[in-house]
Design a protein around this nucleic acid. Structure first.
Lengths: 195, 195, 195, 195
DNA sequence: TATGAATGAGAGTTCATTCAT
DNA sequence: TATGAATGAACTCTCATTCAT
């Protein structure tokens, strides 16, 4: 089955927005990458912002699916779920990784524009995470705080837009995942080791 | 002493870049806010990017000073230093807060452009933080990892650009500082409570 | 009999061109109003201009018919014919009035584009009017000038595109028709009353 | 004294809008005609519509001045004033004539956009004309109707946008002016000859 | 006949930058 | 030092038109 034009555009947009950013990516660049004319972009999307929003919604949906899949597993602990999630995201293949890159890179624009639906999606992701956190609290593995707040903090670390904080330091993806997991779980204090 | 034109421009730029971002702030906007002509901007700065870079260097220098002042205190522990730093940044007055806002909001652009000097500054900040971490390790309050990596992680949380993750949730600044401090120190696991 | 597609398009075009104008009416708008696709427009008409021209020809034919019907009446004077015509046009029902509106609003574009056939139609209308004028001259009711010129002047007043000069002033259509008739017949001087 | 850039742009715009119309005249065309870059247009005018509006206001002001100059003459009758006005407009030199052309050609757009100030101007012109009509009524040369309505009718004939109704028929400008004056004063009936 | 996806030329507009004064 | 007028490249977006189905 041939790929739809809209799909090709979205794919090209994902690529361009991940390499550059919302402002440095022009509609002409996306059109060229997708191999269609500029006009075609506007047949499928009302505006650049609309295209971006749709792409973000798709990206959010992807993560919601990933998060939910892990969250719904009934046979593993909350901590194991968190570890799995972090590994999934950090070790994501090139293609999927771009989606995270866009979300990280352009996170600031999300909340400023295209509010409504996007904020809903964000809330949905947080809720899923909060569910895991709640489970962790029940299991006495996670401290007894507001699950919502803790989920937000975890999310902020996972989608940290600082380019790639540790990528330069820890080349190995497994090492990265472990470091992030350790940091989220225990912070930097020694307390963990007191145990 | 009357404020220098260059100073007025920089101040106006800080304001504009913190309210908007690098791309949505135009030279005209900065000029107007500063009360000078666009031409004057170009007498003091070679380009928009140069102006932005200089501003970022100034912002970095500000934080280096703040960080160093705290780091150099000889009578308090590393953990106390970290708490002090987080409080200083989270509870910064409106004016100083803008600087953090720029750094957070435009963090992604920093590493892509204006590399050289800026990366040096970043490294300098990390080094100061790493010094505190080292002290903490010596004091057995911080886990025995790579101080450099730990410092980067701490920094990423402090300058997290996700708008304001918790601002909407925790209105009280002291509460915010405590939450961030707790998160950095202990993560989300229960082990922290053993302490 | 179901209305033909072409007829539906023409009707939609009449509506759109009367509400907006040639340039602010897009093919997409006409297609939507007609309930057909843009492609269909191009099956029935070679181009936007062609569609417009055809519409104008239809409009002209309508007025030719109206004018001729009145002109051919054998039992009334030229002056009565003129009065009848003006009433017919001014008091035309909403639907017919649109046709006049297009002619008035877009008159300027007629002579610049789509010349040939349209100018013939215009000439035909003028000839019919000139015929009435000639009758009036014979009847010594209209001054002895060039009937062609006088017909043009009358037409220009009737199809005056100044939005609706008097519509705002004279709400009553009969009043409007009387004013226009009076103006065409006697101008603004008192002479008529001298008689 | 060198002509100002803004003046050059306005002049170029007058030319282009008189030869073409609002929609078929592009900013690029005006810029080229004026010998400046497109960007310069936007230094002097906020938008195409703004430029057009300013031009229309200037055109209206020109006619207000012309009308007032004639209206204020204390030694001639209202009828003589009207004749003078018509001659002034019909026989206007090429350059001034363009202004009338724009007003006639784009009259329809005037009332749709740029309302406020422009409608005031129109009203001002009508008032001046109405003043002349009032004088005519007092002198018993003009019929005793609503001066405002009569003025509108006169204006509509003078600024009739039907391309140039009589231009093709009456090449001689004096002849044109006489015909229009005759038409406005006496219409087409024979009564005029009683005078 | 009819559709709707695709095109591409060109529209209005913005903005970092330059430069004569 | 400072100005503001001018530039031109690039931008987002529109729309008459085409064409495979």
């Amino acid at each position: 089955m041939a790929e739809s034009t809209k799909g090709r555009i979205l794919k090209a947009a994902v690529y361009m927005f991940s390499v550059y950013n919302y402002y440095t990516t022009s509609m002409a660049m996306i059109a060229e990458k997708a191999g269609v004319s500029k006009g075609t972009l506007y047949w499928h999307f009302a505006s650049k912002e609309e295209l971006f929003r749709e792409l973000l919604v798709k990206a959010a949906d992807y993560f919601i699916k990933v998060f939910k899949t892990t969250a719904q597993k009934s046979d593993i602990s909350a901590v194991e779920k968190l570890y799995e999630l972090i590994k999934l995201i950090v070790e994501a293949p090139e293609k999927k990784y771009r989606i995270k890159s866009i979300l990280s890179k352009n996170a600031q624009f999300i909340s400023q524009k295209s509010k409504e639906k996007l904020l809903e999606k964000r809330e949905e992701i947080i809720e899923v995470l909060a569910g895991i956190v709640k489970q962790g609290i029940k299991e006495k593995a996670i401290q007894d705080g507001d699950p919502h707040q803790l989920a937000i903090a975890v999310l902020a670390v996972i989608f940290n837009p600082h380019g790639s904080w540790l990528i330069d330091e820890l080349r190995d993806k497994e090492e990265q995942a472990n470091f992030i997991f350790g940091f989220i779980m225990n912070g930097i204090s020694t307390k963990g080791e007191l145990k």
